[in-house]
Nucleic acid binder design. Structure first.
Length: 495
RNA sequence: GCACGGUUGUCAGAGCGGCUAUGAGCGGGGUUGCAGACCCUGAAACGGGAGUUCAAAUCUCUCACCGUGCUCCA
């Protein structure tokens, strides 16, 4: 079954086909490194991580390129607010970018080009566009002329040339004064005092934002490539500008065969933005929430739909994630020996519960693949994993004989590692899963006191002195300790 | 104004022509002194109107409402 994906340009799901059989060229717009990454970046690169993983899992050899925009107005402004050293600012933020993404178990792209390494290419492409009559030199830079290719306007977003708001009023940037038309966009910005500059045939200056991605993607992939991704907000004008540049420069139409855009993150129903003060950096949120729980929460939604991030969503994710984890650990502990016993044939109609269960899990596995094939529907895929977890736990809790239990545990581990592990990326390593959790120092401090109280409570319970037992439990609550009674006796943890 | 997307039970949110998911919540049961956790089980929805069809949450038209973009943005 072919993979289907939603192409922004064609505005529908299409069967995925590659330029070269078995290989995928994928370019995703990276971050402008003027600050730490926030939740929105996490969502974007997580979306494409899932796409990356599923394409690999489906047998494609994926060449994944993601850039860093390391020169731009915001970087210059931010550096000037600090010590003026934009290179230092850029390096620091690239460093923390990797830290944040690694924490979220996002697989590295194959290449992370920086746009300042591509200024020569951008100059070459700009010169070619001028020669072809698609761009013109003005007082303060070089601009792409929309009028030279009006048929390409609004391809991604359906903007109609006449309707785009006229006037460039309100631009923070004071370049753009000598544009012939307000819709034209800068390919090269003439030098301004105090800014980093590069030499060019049009004098000193620096490249425009849009031309970067064209230069870098073409360097890796040539005139055409399979997938171009990015945040929903980049469709206009950034990606439309790329279509103008790339297609006019190469003469290829299309340059990009599949346009993929991920949805945004809202916070408590409001758009996440700095002006509203509801910006969460990944770094901040990971102080409160386990990275795998955050990952689980973010993939538990289709990549194109907006996510409303709130505590309920995170609590939900935590509960479900722990369920998956528990199932994995139980299965790992269930493997007592090498598996050399064949499992029974999977059969829904069988009276053997193991055989029936295997049939169910097989079907869940197929459902998982079907969900991912259908425009990378990770939410549906997560649902299949949770369904399988329920089934696996049911079997673990049933009275299988030791041989079956061992064989089933091996099967369950394979199932989970292929889906929740390799594709969804939410399983820890086997070693980490089996490792005893490190004791919280706060817990050790009060352990003796708590144990003494629990002992008294156990005594009270066996005396059926419920009032006293509950009194002790309340006292423990006051200390921030939660008691849970199990068949093996009471256990406790910090709230 | 233009464009794109959406409106499904209490909530979140899949479903893309013939049973409807999943999770939380709620009801019943089990386990439990109780609570929690866990397990089993149940009820409950397709924005309004029209059309196509043997059959519509699903396709078409229409109305209403919501979100996002049109400016640097993942």
């Amino acid at each position: 079954m072919p993979i289907r994906m939603h192409d922004t340009l064609r505005r529908k799901k299409v069967d995925f086909s590659t330029i070269e059989a078995g290989k995928v060229s994928m370019y995703v717009c990276g971050v402008t490194v003027y600050d730490r990454c926030h939740l929105g970046h996490a969502r974007c690169y997580l979306s494409f991580d899932l796409i990356h993983r599923w394409l690999e899992q489906s047998g494609f050899d994926v060449h994944y390129v993601q850039n860093f925009t390391d020169i731009d107005d915001k970087i210059i402004h931010r550096a000037n607010e600090l010590d003026g050293d934009w290179k230092k600012l850029v390096d620091e933020n690239i460093e923390t970018y990797y830290e944040d993404m690694d924490a979220l178990n996002i697989l590295r792209a194959d290449d992370y080009p920086r746009c300042t390494d591509y200024v020569d290419d951008m100059i070459r492409i700009t010169a070619d566009l001028i020669e072809k009559g698609n761009a013109y030199v003005a007082d303060d830079g070089v601009y792409f002329s929309i009028e030279s290719a009006p048929e390409k306007y609004g391809m991604l977003t359906g903007q109609i040339l006449e309707n785009v708001r006229s006037g460039a009023g309100g631009r923070v940037d004071d370049t753009g004064k000598s544009k012939r038309d307000h819709k034209d966009f800068a390919l090269w910005k003439a030098a301004k005092p105090g800014e980093p500059t590069w030499d060019s045939p049009w004098g000193a200056g620096r490249p425009g934002w849009h031309i970067e991605c064209t230069a870098m993607s073409m360097d890796y992939f040539g005139a055409q490539f399979d997938i171009h991704g990015g945040g929903h907000d980049l469709r206009f004008p950034h990606h439309e500008a790329e279509i103008f540049q790339g297609e006019c420069h190469t003469g290829c139409s299309p340059v990009v065969h599949h346009w993929l855009h991920n949805g945004f993150v809202n916070l408590d129903g409001e758009k996440m933005s700095k002006s509203l003060g509801n910006f969460w950096t990944i770094n901040e949120i990971l102080k409160k929430v386990d990275a795998m729980v955050l990952r689980f929460a973010l993939i538990n939604a289709h990549y194109r739909s907006p996510i409303d991030m709130n505590d309920a969503l995170l609590n939900d994710a935590e509960r479900n994630y722990n369920r998956v984890l528990e199932c994995y650990v139980t299965s790992l502990k269930g493997c007592l020996a090498e598996n050399n016993v064949p499992l029974p044939v999977a059969d829904f109609a069988s009276t053997n519960p193991l055989s029936k269960s295997l049939a169910l899990l097989e079907k869940m596995g197929e459902g998982f693949a079907k969900a991912m094939d259908d425009d990378f529907n990770s939410r549906e895929a997560v649902a299949k994993v949770l369904g399988a977890v329920r089934e696996i736990m049911k079997m673990h809790n049933s009275d299988m004989d030791a041989v079956d239990s061992n064989a089933f545990s091996h099967y369950a581990i394979d199932w989970l590692e292929e889906t929740a592990g390799a594709v969804l990326g939410v399983l820890p390593t086997r070693e980490m899963a089996l490792a005893e959790p490190e004791e919280d120092p706060r817990k050790l401090e009060i352990a003796d006191e708590v144990d003494a109280l629990l002992l008294a409570r156990t005594q009270a319970r066996s005396d059926k002195d419920w009032a006293k037992a509950d009194e002790i439990r309340d006292a423990l609550h006051q200390m921030g300790v939660v008691v849970t009674d199990t068949a093996e006796g009471p256990t406790w943890d910090l709230a």
